[in-house]
């Protein structure tokens, strides 16, 4: 869980300081992984009942699938932005008009 805290902190640092769209994606992925790690770690402390301590692992499975979908959409947006601007610096992306 300390590892998860470290991972989340690094993600926050990246999200605050970087201005490159790909670096922002890396930071978001790191934070999602930190949250998943916490789910699985805390799941071990659940009292054992019939199938009840699979809940954390199930939630993590859904979370991973969601993160994959999100990454696909972000990468498509990055490609489109690069084609339009020849640049993926987020601070220069002031317009949202295509």
């Amino acid at each position: 869980m300390v590892v998860s805290a470290l991972l989340f902190g690094i993600g926050v640092y990246g999200l605050v300081t970087k201005r490159n769209a790909m670096r922002l994606l890396f930071a978001v992925e790191l934070m999602i992984n930190a949250a998943n790690l916490n789910f699985v770690a805390f799941n071990q402390y659940l009292p054992y009942q019939e199938a009840s301590n699979a809940v954390g692992q199930t939630v993590v499975l859904f979370s991973i699938a969601l993160a994959a979908a999100e990454a696909a959409v972000i990468l498509a947006i990055v490609i489109v932005a690069y084609r339009l601007h020849n640049d993926i610096d987020m601070s220069e992306m002031k317009t949202l008009e295509g």
Binding site: A5, F8, G9, Y13, G14, T17, Y48
Partner: peptide, 30 residues
């Protein structure tokens, strides 16, 4: 960014360490 990251790391770490989770045993048959 560095300040925010250090603050988040310290907060989360102490929050985890302050709990009495270590009194509970990890379920063997997960």
């Amino acid at each position: 960014g560095v300040i925010a990251a250090v603050a988040v790391i310290l907060t989360l770490t102490f929050a985890v360490l302050a709990t009495d989770l270590s009194r509970y045993t990890v379920v063997a048959n997960t």
